[in-house]
Amino acid sequence: MHLCKMQLLDGKKTAKAILNTVKIDVAQRAATGKKIPHLAAILVGTNGASQTYVNSKVKACNEIGFISTLIEYEEEVSEMKLLDKIQELNEDMSVDGILVQLPLPAHISERKVIEAIAASKDVDGFHPENIGRMIMGEAEAFIPATPYGIMLLLEHNNIPTKGKHAVVLGRSNIVGRPMSILLSNNTNPGNCTVTVCHSRTQNLNEICSQADIIVAAIGQPEFLKAEMVKEGAVVIDVGITRLEDASKKSGYRLVGDVDFEQVAPKCSFITPVPGGVGPMTIAALMKNTYKSCVNGD
């Protein structure tokens, strides 16, 4: 018998509300002759998922009145050429945010690319300086877009986090690690007791079943099962994987890291896939770009 009424944490709806606020702020800046935020996005190669992500970021820019520039390179582009372009964008005063869509082809060092972007324009929040500022809880840090989006989702939907036990599944630099830091910060949302789990964790089921909040970010489809989740938990699903499905017109269906059908009835709140964390990541990126623009005033 499930005691709690499950509610969907609707990322689409929340992102829309956040972006509407940014849109109004941009219109006010434009009306008073102030600079309008400008995001430059770089896409290397023809990875389908990356193209989709970049296009949705450019579309979001257009919808809220940002200027956007999309720079596309073939898979074979040299690391040097890419780094030169980043340097050019760093020096271009009209550009507020620089985004290089990951993953990059194997011959290009992601680390070099991330570190080449000026920290003040690193709206993806991956530069070591921004990561360091985030760890120190400094307000001027650009927080990585997905963890920031999740924090905005919790905040907007008034999900209580203070004193809660949060379990983060996954320790990537893009999601897992920053997420664990943000949830443990002395902020609201925040003030959680955080456990980070990964492929070497023992008693994983036991740890998860004690969690008030679970953030699943391991990239394994439908990994989190019902027996790993306690009644009334809040579950945030960061994963997105295409699974073949002959019954679908597209030939596939999108699933997250959570076995949604089984887990959802036990939750107080759960994010859907798609339409949960994805739109929030874009909203967070737009907020970072807006912030960078305002910082330049």
Results as ranks from 00 to 15, higher is better:
residue 99 L to I: 14
residue 62 N to W: 01
residue 135 I to R: 11
residue 153 L to R: 11
residue 144 P to R: 09
residue 68 S to G: 11
residue 156 H to V: 00
residue 183 L to I: 06
residue 162 K to V: 07
residue 53 Y to D: 01
residue 65 G to W: 06
residue 167 V to H: 00
residue 139 A to C: 01
residue 126 F to G: 01
residue 124 D to H: 06
residue 128 P to G: 08
residue 184 S to L: 08
residue 148 Y to H: 12
residue 183 L to V: 10
residue 107 H to T: 03
residue 75 E to Q: 14
residue 176 G to Y: 11
residue 114 I to L: 15
residue 164 K to T: 12
residue 134 M to G: 02
residue 147 P to T: 08
residue 177 R to T: 04
residue 150 I to N: 01
residue 75 E to D: 15
residue 128 P to Q: 03
residue 59 K to I: 02
residue 72 E to K: 15
residue 115 E to H: 08
residue 72 E to D: 11
residue 93 M to A: 15
residue 115 E to G: 01
residue 74 E to G: 12
residue 167 V to N: 04
residue 126 F to R: 06
residue 155 E to Q: 13
residue 121 K to T: 14
residue 80 M to V: 08
residue 126 F to D: 01
residue 160 P to R: 08
residue 150 I to K: 00
residue 153 L to V: 07
residue 89 L to N: 06
residue 98 I to L: 10
residue 52 T to E: 13
residue 165 H to W: 09
residue 159 I to S: 06
residue 141 A to L: 03
residue 151 M to Y: 03
residue 116 A to Q: 15
residue 120 S to K: 13
residue 102 L to S: 06
residue 171 R to M: 09
residue 105 P to A: 01
residue 67 I to V: 13
residue 102 L to K: 03
residue 120 S to G: 05
residue 124 D to F: 04
residue 113 V to A: 07
residue 83 L to A: 03
residue 129 E to P: 00
residue 51 Q to C: 14
residue 62 N to I: 07
residue 83 L to T: 08
residue 78 S to N: 00
residue 132 G to T: 09
residue 168 V to S: 04
residue 134 M to A: 10
